[in-house]
Design a protein around this nucleic acid. Structure first.
Length: 135
DNA sequence: GCCAACGTTGGC
DNA sequence: GCCAACGTTGGC
């Protein structure tokens, strides 16, 4: 079981949109490293839902409900996608500022590669952020 | 809205 | 195979 962080611009697809739908397809990724992360996901993996460009914070946790599907928005069939379900909303969103201020999170892929839209998260990092989310 | 950083593309 | 040009992303 692995942990991930998925970025979305809230004016395109927000946490509330996912909650409203119940299950959402994570497609449209056109970056090879992000695709590799998508392809590595297993059903039951958990992912932080992060709002980029606006918000700049982790707002919720979702679980992978369907793994290893091809991106339905792509005709060439070479891009990957997964389906996710909203699991829980964080009691307190964890902002990028707070993540940067936490030494244990300094090595996060999110920080080191700011443009990667689907990042891996280590179990330690996951736990630290979950603790921060409790306030 | 701007711009830096990064990834991709295409000409040579 | 290199590298300049271009497009996109995301933090500010």
């Amino acid at each position: 079981m692995a942990y991930w962080l998925m970025k979305s611009e809230p004016f395109k697809y927000s946490w509330d949109d996912l909650v409203a739908e119940g299950e959402g397809t994570w497609d449209g990724v056109r970056n090879y490293q992000a695709r590799n992360n998508l392809a590595a996901m297993q059903v039951g993996d958990e992912a932080f839902f992060y709002h980029s460009r606006e918000g700049l914070e982790v707002v919720g946790i979702c679980t992978v409900s369907v793994a290893g599907i091809t991106d339905p928005t792509d005709e060439t069939g070479k891009w990957a996608a997964v389906k996710v379900k909203a699991k829980e909303k964080l009691a307190h969103p964890v902002t990028l500022v707070a993540i940067k201020a936490e030494p244990r999170l300094a090595e996060m892929q999110l920080i080191r590669q700011s443009r990667l839209s689907v990042c891996g998260v280590t179990p330690v990092e996951w736990q630290v952020i979950c603790e921060m989310a409790k306030g």
